[in-house]
Every structure is written in C-alpha cells, then in structure tokens.
Design a protein around this nucleic acid. Structure first.
Lengths: 324, 324
DNA sequence: TTGTAAGCGTTATCAC
DNA sequence: GTGATAACGCTTACAA
C-alpha cells in the first residue's frame, strides 16, 4: 500500500502545458489536435492519471452505480440472476444490499441506495409492502421489481402461472385429496406461495391439502413431521421450491417411506441441490441466468428510451428426474 | 417514480434564513444554537433534505464504500462471510465484484475499485498472482486478503493446516496406499489444494494417492470416473471441499459402491449440501460467519490504528456424520 | 482547436 | 454561534 497523492486534471494540464478543459475534452469527446493528443497521451500515461469519480459524478449527476436489493445471497436463483446481470453489464457497478428476507431492511435499503445516487434500482423480493411502495415512489431513478407482480413498477419475472400448468399432466389421474401443496404463505411471497399453485388449485377445484412452511429446509422438516404425525401420507407432494422439497424429502424418508414409490415429489427452481439428493428431484426449472440479463437490459432501457409495452415473463420447463 | 429536483444545502440555508455553513455545522458537529437548530429541524424535515454524497466525498476524500472482490457468489463460505460482514457493518456500503474464478478479472476488479475511491478492499481469492500483487501494491487504501497466506498483505483466514490435522485420527489405522487425496491444483488454490492436506501428507509420508480436479461437482464426477476405470477403489477419500466430495460420492455410487462400507469419504467446509446427500457427509466445518466479522473489523482497524501483530486464523472442527 | 471562468454541493477556515 | 469565502476536481458554455 503505497501512498501516492492523487494527480488531478489541473496537474495534467500544467504538465502538458495546456488548459484544464483541453484535458477534459481529451478524456471525453476527444476534440483535440493530434499534437496535444500525443502530448497528453504521454503525460497521462506517465503520471498514471485517473479522473476522480466524485468530481465527475458531482457534475454529471450520474454515478455509474446500480443498486440491487436482494433477499439473500444463499440462493441459486439469486446467484444465477446476478451472473446474468454481470454477463451483460456494460460498465456499471452493482451496489448490492442483502435484506435477509426482512421487509424493514428492504425499505431501508431502497432509501440508502437512493441517497447513494445510484442510476437505477433492481429490487428482488417476495413481498412489496406498502412501505416499500412508498419508498420506491420516492425514488427518482428507474426501478425494476423482480419476484412479484406489480401494476405500479416495472417488473421482470419468471412465468409462475405457466410453471404451475406444467405440472397438470402429472396429477391428471390422481384424486385431489392425494395431493399436498407445500408452500409459503402468499402474504410472504405471492408468486411463490400462490401463483405457482394457481393452475393446480383450479384443476383440483381447491380440494387438495395445503400446508405452509418457510423457505428453510430445517423448518420444513419440522412442519412435515408435524403433518405426518396427524395426517396420512399424501401420494403427491408439490413443493413451492426445491429447498422446501428437500425438507419434505428428509421428513418422509426418516419415517421410512420411499420416494417415489410411496410418495412422489415435485418442486420448482431446478437448483443444483435437486441433482444431488437421492432420489434426484423432478422440478420445474427456470433460466435465471437469462432472467438476470433481462433485468439489466430492461433497466438500461428505462434509463434512456420510450416506455415499453408490458413486463416480460420467462417460461420454465419441467425437468424430469426420479422423485416423480 | 416522481421527479423531485434535489434540494441543496443552499436551499435549506435560504429557507431557514441562515448561512450555508451553519446548516453544514448543524448536519455535522452540531455547534448551533437551540433556536437555529429547531428551525433547521423543521426545514430539513419539511423538504426531506438529503446531503449529496458526491459533494461530501469530493471534500472528504472518503466514500463510505468498501470494495469486495469475490471468486463466486455460489458458495456457502462466501455467502456466510458476507453475512458476517453485514452483521458487524457500521454504515459502509459494499461494492462487490464477482470475478468468476478468473485471475484476470480479479486484477481488473482491484483496479476498478481503486478508481471508485473505496475506503478499503477485501479480496477473497484462491490465488494471488504477480499481477494481483502489483495491482494491490498500487492501492492507497487498506487491503485484506482472504483465502491465501501472504507476507505482503494483511490476511484473515481459516486455519487450514489445523483442519488437516483434525483428520489424522481417522486414518491412523489405515495403510497410506488406501488413502486418496482429491483436491485442486495448489497453483490454483494453495490453501485448499495444499495446506488442507499438509498434515495428512506428512503423516502418510507422501505415500498416499493424489488426484486433481476442479471446484465443480460435475467435473469431479468425470475425474473420478476416469480414476476408477484405471485404479482400485480406495478405502478412504479425503476431498478438499464438500462440493468435490459430492462429485466423488456420485461417482462411486454410480459404480454400485457403498459409502461408508466400501469407501469412506470426508471433506472440508460443512456446507448445507453436506447434510442433504445420502449418506450425509463427515466434514471439517469452519465458522465462516465469524470469519466475515473478522474481515470487516480487521479492515476498519487498519483504516485507523496501529499495525497489528499477526494475521488471525480461525480454527475449524470435525463434524461427524455417516460418510466416515 | 483552445483556454477562461463559472458552476456542481459540500466542508473548512476565519473573521466577526 | 454565525456567515462569507475559498477550496475539492471535474465539466461545460462561451470567447478567443
């Protein structure tokens, strides 16, 4: 860590024997004579000049930073979306805030990002509370919400409705009462807790069983233990996420049941975990890498151009393995 | 998204009928009379004033941002460390750059962060290349390296040497030739690829088998397939990470072998994946959440105070499950 | 093409 | 305790 005092645009100007604005032009538009350009090339290289971002941003009122609010880092869909965003990123920095699934921290995050003068905000969330809506309305830069439908804000989502329809053939022969829907409270995550099941609920005329748990595997194990202690083993378990399915799997296996012979399990997400358990999970996969690319591109679009017609939805597909 | 033109410190001053510097003092030190304070309280609240960070940073030459260079987001240790950092974070923002295990991007990331005027940089890496060293030397803010030993830079690490010693009792009775070390090339990650095995190699006098793979489960499956096609099944497999162990597990199971009866497997990290596979993995766990806290605290220390004596190391512990 | 000068929104100095 | 005034490093009219 070497102390090197910063060389400024004035220094460069003086050293090159030109004016500040010439240096500025040299760095930006580029309307300079070949002669001065050459001189500046040399000086800038020699002194390893880097413009001060704060000064630049103070003038330009744009920061080159995009705020990202995420509910957790420990999630396949999240890391894939971020990878997608990185993949198409031009030269923005991502200022990411992890809210740990906390609605209050989520609101705080938006306010903090706004104060940091980010050029746009991407919010990944299961829940857009009223406070959140209020906070997002205050923001003066483009905002995209991922994870929930919204009429107020731009959204980019996977098509959860369609994903649920993909499972219809699987339960075509079964009795509604054979089916257990294992998900989260819709008020916590409407897309995951409700929309993924909509088609199934409609097909079964609401006559299936339904249990709520959290996104955690361990908690789901508890929930399923309790359920199995007081109910018959269902023939089919449809879990809202792979992780939830993992909990159900562990719970039924510890009771000595066989999957898929005694009970079949299907889930959503197609995360790596689905492949490593025994039996491997049949699950509806989404290309979150592509979704991440959409997110970034959409945000950049909003920063510049005309409003777009409607919010894009990414279709998933059923990946058949051995759990169903 | 409502357009609200920013209200500046001058606006507040004018509206409150005081000078700019009084407002500034009000916002910072606080040496103002009760009367003006009350007036400013009101005005600031009414107009919802927020200071412009760019202007502040331009003056103060500090940004409130900490740069974090990570090799991937899709890793338990990484997400836990970030959680630890968040947990003790005072009010810094993390500007995180994912390098996707690419040494070149890693160097780029450091340079970019330096240009962003971050107040410090935390580098998580398996590999400190010469270019990386050069880049880090250019940086004028505190730097901490996590993941590799270093004599030049401050480090905060788990104690990989000690972690390897923890496995010595497991192989005390075995023949050296029964043991397969399954890891990564030390030049790719010295700590994970070499130091974790040091104690074992010494104890076995270098007479065990050793195979290199990558950090990927799928690639490890391939590597192990090839290995098993040309070698006898080892009695013991010691994998450098849980994910690598997962690959080995899948490869031996697809050959019909039983774990732990035919071959025992142990690994390092104690990630959630270790719990969900069958059989569950015996593995050396580290408290990466605590390590993350250390990282942040250490960086803040370096920003202010005296140099510290030596770089801290966090001990791991053996978590026994059924794979060994 | 070039340079001068006036800001951008803060903080810091220093008389009052 | 207060308020001009001068920076901080850059961009951008505007004149030359």
């Amino acid at each position: 860590m070497i102390e090197k005092e910063r060389v400024t645009i004035s220094d460069i100007a003086r050293l090159a024997g030109v004016g500040k604005s010439t240096v500025s032009r040299y760095l930006n538009d580029g309307s300079v004579s070949p002669k001065t350009r050459a001189k500046l090339d040399a000086v800038v290289k020699e002194y390893d000049y880097e413009p001060n971002r704060f000064a630049q941003s103070l003038k330009k009122t744009t920061s080159g930073m995009i705020g990202v609010v995420v509910p957790t880092f420990a999630s396949f869909s999240l890391t894939e979306m971020m990878r997608g965003m990185d993949h198409v990123n031009q030269d923005d920095f991502f200022l990411t805030i992890n809210t740990y699934h906390d609605a209050k921290r989520q609101v705080e995050a938006v306010k903090q990002l706004a104060q940091q003068n980010v050029d746009g905000i991407i919010v990944m969330t299961g829940q857009v509370t009223d406070e959140m809506t209020a906070a997002l309305e205050q923001v003066s830069v483009p905002v995209i919400v991922q994870g929930q439908p919204s009429t107020q804000f731009e959204t980019v989502n996977v098509d959860n409705q369609h994903a649920g329809e993909l499972l219809l053939p699987l339960i075509a022969d079964g009795e509604p009462s054979d089916v257990l829907l294992l998900g989260v409270d819709p008020s916590v995550d409407y897309n995951v807790g409700q929309v993924r099941f909509d088609a199934i609920i409609k097909a079964l005329d609401g006559k299936m069983k339904r249990v709520y748990t959290s996104f955690e595997r361990n908690e789901t194990i508890e929930v399923m233990r309790d359920y199995l202690a007081t109910h018959e083993l269902p023939k089919y378990i449809i879990a809202a996420t792979d992780i939830i399915a993992l909990g159900a799997l562990a719970a039924v296996q510890e009771q000595g049941f066989n999957v898929p012979d005694d009970v079949k399990i299907v889930a959503f997400d197609n995360s790596p975990a689905a492949e490593i358990v025994t039996p491997a999970l049949t699950t509806v996969g989404f290309d979150y890498f592509v979704l991440g690319q959409w997110l970034y591109r959409r945000l950049k679009d909003l920063s510049q151009a005309e409003p777009v017609l409607h919010d894009p939805m990414l279709a998933g597909s059923l990946v058949r393995r051995t759990s169903w």
